[in-house]
Design a protein around this nucleic acid. Sequence first.
DNA 1: TTGACATTTAAGTTTAATCTTAAGTAATGG
DNA 2: CCATTACTTAAGATTAAACTTAAATGTCAA
Lengths: 109, 109
Amino acid sequence: MRPVQDTDVFHAIAHPARRAMLIALKQGERAAGDLAEPFGMSFAAISQHLRVLEDAGLVAVRRDGRFRMYRLDADPLREVERWVEEFAAHFERHLDALGRYLDAKHPKR
Amino acid sequence: MRPVQDTDVFHAIAHPARRAMLIALKQGERAAGDLAEPFGMSFAAISQHLRVLEDAGLVAVRRDGRFRMYRLDADPLREVERWVEEFAAHFERHLDALGRYLDAKHPKR
DNA sequence: TTGACATTTAAGTTTAATCTTAAGTAATGG
DNA sequence: CCATTACTTAAGATTAAACTTAAATGTCAA
């Protein structure tokens, strides 16, 4: 059975193994087997994670002989980027003197 | 029982209700009850979501009389921001002529 | 064509997340 | 002190995620 039927990018990146796979794919296309290597996990499990990433639109596959080559499509991460940036104004401005001044003047209620 | 014992910000933002709560908190402190309102969910469930956010360091509580006031701490989102920005170079440059040129010259491997 | 390889899919188990109801706690107002 | 408000915590049910092993699929190479 398919472990998930999700298309949500936030869910897709919630699992560390899936994040690691995306990072690996920044280097370029990789065969499923290569992506599996660093994980102490069955092949099938990896395949299922790849499916979650595919459903979220974060990777695409093509067949190359007996390999399946996965390629990154980072675009759906823009949704995450956009969402996080909505909070940028609320990040602490650790090394920013103006920020400290404003924080002191207008303290955290 | 605590529904989660997680401290992972990626997991914390994976649930749409939790994301909605964070967005609501951008406006400023809110009592737990106010945060619960827009969801067709039991009070207890909301409380549990708030706990996940708290464990991830995304919110802090203080008691104000019989209310519990939750306040946003966006800082842990910087980890997400940082992570996503690692992929910025891979975003499609839809409206960017240079980008299209480079994509054509140096096609998606 | 047969067998090995590189996977995916199916089936089922285990673990974890999410929810509910009910009981517990802490502060306020009468 | 007692009831009410505003929650949290506990307990347990339900659903979903994440694994595993085994079988199926498609390709290559002899």
